[in-house]
Amino acid sequence: MDIIYAIWLRNVKRYVRSKSRIVGSLGMPLFFLLVLGFGLNSVVVIPGTGEGYLEFLVPGVIAMTVLFTSISSGVQIIWDKQFGFLKETLVAPVSRLEIMLGQTLGGATTAFIQGVIILVLSVFIGLNIVSAVGFLIAFLFMILIGIAFTAFGIAIASRMEDMHGFQLIMNFVIFPIFGLSGALFPIDSLPSWLKPVALLDPLTYGVEGLRYGLSGTAQIDPMVCFVVLAGFTIAMTVLGSYLFRKITI
């Protein structure tokens, strides 16, 4: 536990200190919220819910924020490798599993905080809060998304020599995960051949769970969302730990 805490603490300290990173990574979600949310609010009506597009969009943008922050926290390991700091942790008499878990929880924490910032900002620009319990449900899903995708980032980072390959992963893995997840549109309105693909995307369940918590309605049963996302989180943690164990410097 001490080791996990030490590594978690380092990650959180670095996060709190990197003001430019915090602000920078809030830029895109805010842009989505303001431009899409307000721009399309009066044009788009989400069938079957009666809510405005802004209400619909907020959970999606929160999921996006948590997704991108957690992936980049996981990939942080490559920087640690390049700047030599990883050696300091690897040569210590601690298990790789502890290092990996500390890194995962640290990344998930920062991703969660970023998500909460977007959530709070959304309340300011007009999101109606349905219930306190709904908030907690939303938090739960944010944490799960954060853990799952930080672990996913670590898994990727463990197999990569340097940052060069990252752009590729970004374009062919992470953007599709985001784009297909129903963060920006209801999955029910997808053409029938594309809907199964969206249902294979783990983030879909995160977005729908968040949506249930924040607006009270969702297109997938929240229990199903929870089970699928929790399963994915465990799978990613196992995969991340496995690949991280084999990392060499």
């Binding site: 380092r10 300290k13 670095r14 700047f83 030599g84 700091f85």
Partner: peptide
């Protein structure tokens, strides 16, 4: 180590 292994942000 031969190469630096400190965390510069700390």
């Amino acid at each position: 180590f031969q190469d630096q292994s400190l965390d510069e942000e700390l």
